[in-house]
Simulated scan of single mutants.
Amino acid sequence: MEGGGGTLSEIYQSAKKLLMRAQDGIERLERLENSTSSGGLDSPELSFVVKKDISQVLSLCADMDRLWRSVQAKPQRDLWRRKVELVAEEAGSLKESLDRYFARNQRRMKEAQERAELLGRANGDSAHVLRIFDEEAQAMQSVHNSKRMLADSISTGAAILSKYSEQRERLKVFLIV
C-alpha cells in the first residue's frame, strides 16, 4: 500500500496520489492505442500497474470507509463520508475506462487474427506465417490471462487483509470494553 498512512487524512492522500497515477496511466494507454491505430500497441506492464493502482485505491476506500465512521463531529464525518464516496466513484470510473480499453484491445486482436486467417486462405503459401501468428496470439492471450489472474489474486489478498484488519479492530474494541 503506497504511503502506508494510518490516519484518515494520510490514507486519503495516498488514495488521491494513486488515483492520479492511474488516471495518467490510462491516458498513456489511450495515447499508445491512438498513436498506433493501425496495429494497436498494447503495453501489458502499464495496464497491469494501472489495474493494481485501482485495486489499491479500492482497498484504501474500504479502510477510509471504516475510519470516517469513527469521526466524532458530525460535520466532519459527513465531509469525510462524501470525500470517500467521491474517491470510490472516481476509482470505479477509472476501472470502467480500463475495462473498455481491455475490450477494445481484445477486439483488435481478434480482428487481426481473422484478417490473418482470411489472408491465409487467399494465399495458400502463408500457412507458415499464420501458424506463427496463431502461436504468438496464443502466447499473448496466455500472458494476458495470467496477468488478469495475478491481479485478481492480489485484489483478493488485499480484500482479505482489509477484512482481517476490520476484525482485529472489532476484537480490540471488545477486549477494551
Rank of each mutant, 00 (worst) to 15 (best):
M1W: 00
G3N: 07
G3Y: 01
G4N: 00
G5D: 01
T7S: 02
L8D: 02
S9R: 11
E10C: 02
I11G: 00
Y12H: 10
Y12N: 03
Q13V: 04
S14K: 00
K16V: 11
L18C: 05
R21G: 04
A22M: 07
A22L: 07
Q23K: 04
Q23W: 03
R31S: 12
L32M: 05
L32W: 08
N34Y: 05
N34V: 10
S35N: 08
S37R: 05
S38A: 14
G39M: 06
G40E: 11
L41Y: 07
P44M: 10
P44D: 08
E45T: 09
S47M: 07
F48Y: 10
V50R: 01
V50K: 01
V50H: 02
K51C: 05
Q56W: 00
Q56V: 02
L58M: 11
S59W: 02
D63F: 09
D63T: 05
D65M: 07
R66L: 11
R66C: 05
R66M: 13
R66Q: 13
W68M: 01
W68Q: 03
R69T: 04
S70E: 03
S70G: 03
V71F: 04
Q72V: 03
D78K: 13
L79A: 12
R82N: 13
R82P: 00
K83R: 15
V84D: 04
E85S: 03
L86F: 12
L86M: 15
V87R: 03
V87W: 04
A88G: 07
A91M: 02
A91Y: 06
A91C: 02
G92P: 00
S93I: 06
S93T: 12
L94Y: 06
E96P: 02
S97P: 00
S97E: 14
L98R: 04
L98A: 03
R104V: 01
N105W: 06
N105Q: 15
R108Q: 03
M109Q: 10
E111A: 14
E111F: 12
A112F: 04
A112H: 10
Q113N: 03
Q113F: 12
E114V: 05
R115S: 04
E117N: 08
E117Y: 09
L119Q: 13
G120A: 05
G120D: 06
G120W: 01
R121N: 04
N123W: 13
G124A: 15
G124K: 15
S126Q: 08
S126H: 06
A127D: 12
A127V: 13
H128D: 09
V129F: 13
V129D: 07
L130S: 02
R131S: 14
I132V: 11
F133L: 09
E136R: 09
E136T: 05
E136P: 00
Q141K: 14
S142V: 01
V143W: 06
H144N: 09
N145I: 04
K147T: 10
M149K: 15
L150S: 09
S155A: 15
T156K: 15
A158Y: 07
A158N: 11
A159V: 09
A159W: 05
L161A: 14
L161C: 14
S162P: 00
S162C: 08
S162H: 06
Y164I: 12
S165Y: 00
S165D: 14
S165A: 15
S165H: 08
S165L: 02
E166H: 07
Q167M: 15
R168S: 15
R170T: 14
L171R: 05
L171G: 08
V173R: 15
V173I: 11
L175T: 13
L175V: 12
L175M: 14
I176W: 09
